[in-house]
Each structure stands twice: as structure tokens, then as C-alpha cells.
Amino acid sequence: MEQLWPFSDPFWAIYWPGGQALARYLLSNPGVSQGKRVLDLGCGCGASAIAAKFCGASHVVANDIDPVAAIATQLNCELNGLNPLPCDTENVIGSEPKGYDLILLGDMFYEEALADSLHSWLNRCIQTHRTHVLIGDPGRAQFEGHSIRRLLRQEAQFELPKAVREENYGLTCSTVWRYLPEL
């Protein structure tokens, strides 16, 4: 495989459980993204961005710092019969907040420093533009133990398929959380 694929750790190639939960949630509740400007932060394969577009979002941007993730997102758009979505590969965390109505984050709370910077940036987005934030996570220890957990309200929970449970060390479900910081 190494000769055919020169990249290590293709995180964008995996349909992560948090992203799966977000996509399933949006598809089950199309009004959440309908008519909205949506940012899929850390989009990976673009599943949440694609789900938002299918649900009638007015504008969707897929963002991931890995440029190969942008290619994976474009391929997945094509496979799903969608025109290519705008893909941004800049690290937007910490940047001046843009006017998104909804930010989606799947599986982004995998280390404390990243979680801390996300917490700060998301607060600025909410304060500046009244942005809504949905987080998908299967209950990883770094997420469960972070102080941000007290600022979340559970919106939905989805059982993971058997293969995904095995790939994710036995995690059995993934949850969609609404981020409600104390402003």
C-alpha cells in the first residue's frame, strides 16, 4: 500500500464517528442548515458539508488544513451528484470570525490544546455573528474530560455500525452536541 499511497495517516480518508453523527443529524433535521451559511471545520471527507448542502444550506464551506481532505471532499461531492463545494485549507481557528450561521465540528476535540483554542474561537464567532455550533463526538476521553463539556446540550445520539465500533476501540455511539457557552 505504501507504494500506491505516499501519505501517512490519511485522517481525511476516514468517515469519523463524530462526522457521521453530524451528517445523520442534519439529514434527519434539514431545517437546522436550510438557508444557512455553514462552515464544516475540520471537514475530513466532507460528509457533514455535503449533508448541509443536501438539506438546503445557502452556502457551505468545507475547511481542513490537509489539502488532500479538500480533494476527498470534492470527490465525495462528485460521487453524491453535487457541484464542488468551496474548500478552504487555511487554519481558520483564531482568525477573525466570518459570518457563518452554523459551524459543524466532527471529531475535533482530540487534544486539549486544540480544544482550548476552539473554545476561544467559537466564543468569538458566537459573540460576533450569533453563530450556532454543533459538535459531533463519540465520547473520546479528551472530549469527555474537557471543561467545554459543561457548555454542551445533547441534541441526538446515534449507534455506530459494527465496523466503525471496531475501528474506534469499541466506542458504541456518537453524539451531536449544541455548544452553548456562557457569554
Rank of each mutant, 00 (worst) to 15 (best):
Leu152Trp: 05
Pro97Ile: 01
Ser33Gln: 11
Arg37Met: 05
Gln3Phe: 13
Arg153Gln: 11
Cys173His: 15
Phe7Glu: 10
Trp12Gln: 09
Asp40Gln: 07
His129Ala: 00
Tyr179Arg: 04
Ala156Lys: 03
Arg124Ser: 12
Cys125Gln: 05
Leu41Gln: 12
Ala57Arg: 08
Ala72Gly: 07
Leu183Arg: 07
His129Gly: 00
Ala70Asp: 01
Leu4Gln: 09
Cys87Ser: 09
Arg24Val: 13
Glu90Tyr: 05
Leu105His: 01
Pro86Phe: 02
Gly106Pro: 02
Cys77Ala: 09
Pro138Trp: 00
Val61Cys: 10
Pro138Glu: 06
Gln20Arg: 14
Thr128Pro: 08
Pro181Ala: 06
Pro97Val: 04
His119Asn: 04
Asn91Met: 04
Thr73Cys: 15
Asn123Met: 03
His59Gln: 15
Pro97Asn: 03
Tyr25Gln: 11
Ala49Ser: 11
Gly35Thr: 03
Thr172Ser: 09
Leu160Met: 12
Thr172Ala: 07
Thr89Asn: 15
Ala163Asp: 04
His146Cys: 03
Ser120Asn: 08
Thr172Asn: 05
Val60Gly: 10
Ala51Glu: 14
Pro10Arg: 07
Gly18Val: 14
Asn29Lys: 14
His132Ile: 08
Leu27Glu: 15
Leu26Gln: 04
Ser147Cys: 04
Gln127Leu: 01
Tyr169Lys: 08
Thr172Glu: 12
Leu85Arg: 14
Ile65Gln: 03
Tyr100Lys: 02
Ala70Asn: 09
Tyr25Asp: 11
Pro67Cys: 01
Trp5Tyr: 08
Ile148Tyr: 05
Gly31Glu: 14
Ala163Trp: 00
Ile50Trp: 14
Ala51Cys: 03
Pro84His: 12
